[in-house]
Design a protein around this nucleic acid. Structure first.
Length: 737
DNA sequence: AGCACGCCGACT
DNA sequence: GTCGGCGTGCTC
């Protein structure tokens, strides 16, 4: 037998190119040491070295042999993920038509992208030695310390690190040495884990509905079953999640729980800790690079039982996946809106498929996609309709703003209601999805509006910081003292943001404690937790907030919810706007009357007779959703068809359109099978100085759309104009912005 | 993307 | 004379 020539390694690199690069392995490096999923250091282009990931091996290459370079070194001893996870990443790359190299790197923790070792630091762990026979040496009655230490160790079957021992047992080394000599314990080196095993004490009895939901899920844990847990706010979905997670963990498997935003993690951490005896890790953007790496590795090694995280956590490899849970599955933040535009909810479903374990999608306001999948029998819907503690659903009051003074953002009935709630020492939540002081600054004399020069849109005035800020590109400017056009110094603040509403409230209710909760006031780490504490302690009287406040939080003392402006979403260019509006109104309303006190929701609108609004308020979210689904069906919009959006932007005004026109011609042979609309300007036509256009592709056949995209993206990449502008493909777009 | 090569304008 | 502007092309 002749010795095989050293294999050619196919390496994916973090570059926006839809292809891999071939490298020669070291002669002295047996093939088994180079498996797909391992990182390697390679020379690339003009840069001396670059981290890449091996995606395959071959004995041949399309590139001339003399052009092939040799890899510099192998970073990993073992692949970063198992073949199934790698397969999932490959599939995702094809589905979203996103280059595999960039995709692989974007799903890794930053530390691993930068070539850090994928190893947990090791620590010495002491654990009880399993006796060969049933005879275990006895501890003398007098040796109280040894017995106490032994008892402690028995509670921690996985072992205790020396650090944990020190903090739990003073002067443990002496007694430990004695136990070691008796052959009762042993020490070993094992990866350091921060996923400490906690000792949950609180037991909760599920109510009948919750128990039923749990039973349904439990009866089908060994297949990739998809459950839609459809439960109104306050129905106790979290209890069901916790029960399922506990069940999964007891079977020695891992549970992944995704939440839509980072602000919800502290609450879930607390709930999991008090209920489940499990090793928990958290993954979200608030962690440092090394913390993220640690959590990622612990999930992969199986040192963590529960993985809690936001969108990007969905990419964490698991050793023994048992279940995937997506809380508030309808939430738009599961969709990444830049670079790699994936949906974490859809990836969770895909992962359940690959792992052959169930996925639970939970929501009080399920997305139309999910409801449609229930209709198609792809998801099993489990309804939880009752509120725990017999809390009742709130009363809705629609306030017609047309009959009121335009200058007053808060209507008289709302003010009276707030006053009453203050007297009762309860809390009010006012919802306004617009931060800042006022969204428009206009000259009283000539009508000049202060706009962002890079986006052509009005700048939002922030009073506290005395800045005009563009909410689209972030640019800032000091407000001008006078109109630059007519030089008159009478500038009007038009409209209200959370900052200004807070000011109005402080005027009306000087004795009340008012908290403003939006991205501006929660920027600092821990500030959201601080707010939550102040609300729960009863210190706060009135909360003014953006959608941050609408998501998931449980504030038992809120009895009044005011929606200051329900009109955005009734008339919008985006076909999903009405779905979003209904979800937001329902979610915010769900914050009212969660405990014993009945709640009231007051909705201010200029369109009290709008059919969408009346359907939502006179019936419920589900009736509304049915209506929307009918509408979508009649005009063939998702979920009854599939979309892909090609976006193009450039500082040159004409280039994006030219590019998109060329893109259309490349599709010509398939135009009969696809519906193509555009190119048309993006809803925000100019942003950060770039002109933005898009092209919409639609088909009622997903495969056909996918097939067209495959060749198209390849052609686009090789288009000369494609290198001059920035373009991206958004498969299953969620927002048209 | 990231980097170098390359060919035209205002500076010590 | 040169420093540097960013267009163009390539990366195994």
């Amino acid at each position: 037998m002749t010795r095989r020539s050293s294999p050619i390694l196919q390496v994916a690199l973090p570059v926006p190119l839809r292809r891999h690069f071939d490298y020669l392995a070291h002669e002295d490096m047996p093939e088994k040491f180079l498996q797909p999923g391992m990182r390697v250091l390679v020379p690339f282009g003009k840069s001396t070295q670059q981290t890449g990931i091996v995606i395959g091996a071959s004995s041949t290459s399309n590139v001339a042999m003399h052009k092939l370079k040799r890899i510099i070194k192998v970073i990993d001893h073992q692949p970063l993920f198992d073949p199934a996870h790698f397969e999932l990443l490959r599939w995702t790359s094809e589905y979203y038509h996103y280059p595999l190299g960039e995709l692989l790197f974007s799903t890794l923790p930053v530390a691993l992208r930068n070539g850090k070792a994928a190893e947990l630091p090791s620590v010495v762990v002491w654990k009880i030695r399993v006796p060969l026979n049933d005879q275990r040496p006895a501890i003398p009655v007098r040796a109280r310390k040894q017995q106490a230490l032994f008892d402690l160790m028995q509670l921690n079957a996985c072992g205790l690190s020396e650090q944990e021992l020190t903090s739990n047992f003073a002067n443990w080394r002496g007694p430990m040495q004695a136990l070691l000599e008796r052959g009762l314990v042993e020490s070993q080196s094992r990866p350091a884990s921060t996923a400490a095993n906690n000792h949950a004490a609180i037991k909760v009895t599920l109510n009948e509905e919750q128990q039923h939901a749990f039973d349904v899920i439990r009866s089908d844990l060994s297949s990739a079953k998809r459950f839609l847990l459809d439960g109104i706010t306050g129905s106790g979905k979290t209890e069901i999640y916790l029960e399922v997670i506990n069940h999964i963990v007891r079977q020695g498997k891992q549970a992944m729980l995704l939440v839509p935003e980072i602000g919800l993690t502290p609450h879930f951490i607390a709930r999991i800790r008090e209920r489940i005896n499990a090793r928990l890790v958290v993954l979200h953007s608030g962690l440092s690079d090394s913390e993220r790496l640690q959590s990622w590795l612990e999930a992969r090694e199986g040192c963590a039982d529960v993985i809690l995280g936001t969108r990007s956590a969905v990419w964490t490899p698991l050793k023994a996946p048992g279940i995937f849970i997506v809380d508030e599955e309808h939430d738009p933040s599961y969709k990444q809106q830049e670079s790699f535009r994936y949906s974490a909810r859809d990836i969770a479903i895909l992962r359940s498929n690959y792992a052959n374990v169930p996925v639970i999608l939970g929501s009080a306001t399920p997305s139309l996609e999910s409801l449609h999948n229930v209709d198609l029998d792809k998801y099993k819907r489990i309804v939880v309709s009752g509120r725990v503690d017999n809390a009742v659903l709130p009363d809705y009051h629609v306030i017609d703003m047309r009959t009121r003074k335009a200058s007053n953002p808060l209507s008289e009935p709302l003010i009276i209601a707030i006053r009453k709630v203050l007297e009762q020492k309860k809390q009010t939540l006012l919802f306004l999805n617009r931060r800042g002081y006022s969204p428009v600054l206009m000259c009283h004399h000539c009508g000049w509006v202060n706009t962002c020069s890079r986006c052509n849109l009005p700048l939002t005035y922030h009073k506290q910081r005395n800045l005009q800020i563009c909410h689209h590109c972030g640019s800032q400017a000091r407000p001008a003292p006078a109109c630059p056009e007519c030089h008159k110094a009478e500038l009007l603040q038009i409209g209200y943001g959370t900052e200004r509403i807070t000011e109005v409230l402080a005027d009306l209710f000087p004795a009340a404690t008012i908290l403003r909760i939006d991205r501006d006031t929660t920027r600092r780490k821990g500030s959201m937790e601080n707010f939550v504490d102040r609300i729960n302690s009863g210190e706060a009287d009135i909360l003014v907030g953006t959608q941050m406040l609408a998501k998931g939080h449980h504030f038992p003392d809120i009895t009044l919810v005011g929606i200051i402006d329900a009109d955005r979403g009734l008339y919008s260019a985006d076909f999903r706007a009405s779905e979003r509006m209904a979800q937001l109104i329902t979610q915010v309303s769900g914050r009212a009357g969660r405990a014993k006190d009945p709640g009231m929701v007051m909705i201010q609108t200029h369109f009290p007779a709008h059919p969408l609004l009346t359907t939502l308020l006179q019936h419920d979210y589900h009736t509304f959703a049915r209506l929307l689904l009918q509408e979508r069906k009649s005009v063939n919009l998702p979920p009854y068809s599939y979309m892909a959006l090609l976006r193009a932007e450039s500082f040159e005004q004409n280039m994006p359109v030219t590019f998109l026109h060329t893109a259309v011609t490349l599709l010509n042979n398939q135009t009969t099978e696809l519906e193509i609309s555009g190119p048309f300007p993006a809803p925000i036509e100019k942003r950060s100085g770039k002109y933005r256009f898009q092209l919409l592709l639609q088909s009622d056949n997903r495969m056909r759309l996918q097939k067209a995209l495959l060749a198209w993206v390849y052609d686009l990449e090789h288009l000369p104009l494609g290198k001059k502008i920035r373009w991206s493909l958004d498969v299953d777009p969620q927002e048209m912005l």
